[in-house]
Design a protein around this nucleic acid. Structure first.
Lengths: 215, 215
DNA sequence: AATTATGTTGACCGAATGGTCAGGTTGTGG
DNA sequence: CCACAACCTGACCATTCGGTCAACATAATT
C-alpha cells in the first residue's frame, strides 16, 4: 500500500519523473548562470556544474545553448504576465495599481535571477523574444492602458498618461531585482530585510498612489 | 599662417592628437558593442570592425578587453554623477528633484549605450566597479539623502523615505534607456519622438512631484 | 528473459576568441 | 638628414567554447 500511495502521488512512470526533475534542475541552474554572467558570458559547462550534471547531459535535454536560454526567458515571461491578474478585477486604481505594485515587488524578491535574465534580453535588443514583445506584451499593454484610461475618464484618478505610468511601474518594481546588487551594496552589503522590503513596497505605493491623485 | 592657426587650435603634436582620436573612436565603438552584446558577448574583433581599426591596434591602446571595458564603465559613471549637480543648489524639491529627473532623462536619451553598460555591469554583480559603489556612489547617495531629509524636516515635501525615493528616480529615468528597445517596440517600432520624450519626462515629473506632496 | 526505448557520459572536434609579436611605417627632436 | 620613439598590423598561438558521438546503463515493454 505504501508503494501504491507513492506511485499515485508523484511517480507516473519513473522515466517521466526523471525527465521532469532534470529539466527543472537544469532550468534553475541556467536561470541563475544566465542572470549572473549574461548570455554571452554563460557557458554550458558552468550551468552543468551548477546543476550537478555532466555537460553532455544538458545537450540531451536541450539541444543548444540558445534553446535552453529561450526556455528560461519564456518561463519568466509567464510569471511576469500573471502578476497583472490583480489589475483585472480591481474596482479602482487603489486596489488595481496598488496590488500590481505589491505583486511585482514580490516577483522581484522571489525571482531576482529571472528578472535579470529578462532585463538582459530586452537590453540586448530582445533577439529571442522579439515576437513576444510584438504580440503578447503589446496586447497586454493595450489592455491595461485601456483600464487605466477608463479610471481616468471616470474621475477615479488624475489624468496621467497610462503608457508612461505603466513604464514607471515596471521600472520601479524591477529595479529592486535588476539593481539588487547596487541596493545591497548601498545597504552596507546586506540584503534587504523583510522590514526593508515592506518599507520599499510601501514607499513606492504611497508615492505612486499619491502621484496619480488617489489617497 | 593657415598652418599655424590649425596647430594652435587642435594640434599639440600630431602624436597626441592621433592617440586622443583613436582612443575616442575605440571607446565609442566599445561602448556600443558592450551595450548591445554584453561583456561576454562582445568580441574585440567586433569592436575593431565598428571602430574601423585592425584588432591588434586596439590592443596597442588598451592592453586587454577588461581594461577597455573598465574605461568605458568609468566614463559612464562620471556622466552619471554630474547629473546631480542640479540637486545641490536647489532651494527645494520642486527644482532639485524636478531638475534631476530632467537631467537623468536627458542622459538616458543621449547616452543609451552607456546606460546599458552600467546596468549590465551592476546586474552582473559589479565585478569591475564594486569599489566605486562602495565609496563614491555611497558617499554621493548619503549626501543626497541628507538633502532630501532636510526638505522633509523643513516641511517642503511629504515624509518620504529618501533612500527609496532615490531608487525610484534612478529606476524610472534609466528605464527609458535600458528598456528602450521594449519601449520602442510598444511604440510601433519607432523611436520616441521629441514630443514623446517630453511627454515621458513630464509624466514622470508630475507623478513624482505630486507623489511627494509638492505642487 | 529478451528486446527496445530512454537516459548517461567521457572523449573528442572544429570554430572562435583574447592576446602576442616581429617587422614594418610614420612622426619628432636633434 | 639621421636616429629614436611612437604607431600600425598581418600572421600566428594557446585556450576555451558549443556541440557531437559512440559506448554504456537503466527502465519499460512484450
Amino acid at each position: 500500500m505504501n508503494q501504491n500511495a507513492q506511485v499515485s502521488r508523484i511517480q507516473r512512470g519513473k522515466r517521466t519523473e526523471i525527465r521532469r526533475e532534470n529539466e527543472r534542475v537544469i532550468l534553475d541552474a541556467a536561470e541563475r548562470v544566465f542572470a549572473e554572467a549574461g548570455y554571452g558570458g554563460a557557458t554550458m559547462q558552468l550551468i552543468a556544474d551548477m546543476a550537478g550534471l555532466p555537460k553532455a547531459n544538458l545537450h540531451y535535454y536541450f539541444p543548444t545553448k540558445e534553446a535552453l536560454y529561450r526556455q528560461v526567458v519564456r518561463n519568466i515571461f509567464e510569471i511576469w504576465l500573471h502578476a497583472a491578474d490583480t489589475f483585472d478585477d480591481a474596482p479602482g486604481p487603489v486596489e488595481g495599481i496598488g496590488g500590481y505594485i505589491e505583486a511585482k515587488m514580490e516577483i522581484s524578491r522571489r525571482h531576482p535571477f529571472g528578472s535579470k535574465v529578462w532585463a538582459s534580453e530586452v537590453m540586448h535588443g530582445a533577439p529571442v523574444i522579439q515576437d513576444y514583445l510584438e504580440t503578447t506584451l503589446r496586447d497586454w499593454t493595450v489592455g491595461r492602458m485601456a483600464v487605466i484610461q477608463r479610471w481616468v475618464d471616470e474621475g477615479k484618478m488624475a489624468p496621467v498618461d497610462p503608457r508612461h505610468l505603466l513604464y514607471m511601474l515596471w521600472a520601479m518594481t524591477q529595479h529592486y531585482a535588476d539593481f539588487g546588487h547596487q541596493i545591497e551594496t548601498l545597504n552596507g552589503g546586506h540584503p534587504l530585510t523583510d522590514a526593508q522590503w515592506r518599507e520599499a513596497t510601501e514607499t513606492v505605493k504611497s508615492v505612486i498612489l499619491r502621484g496619480i491623485g488617489v489617497v
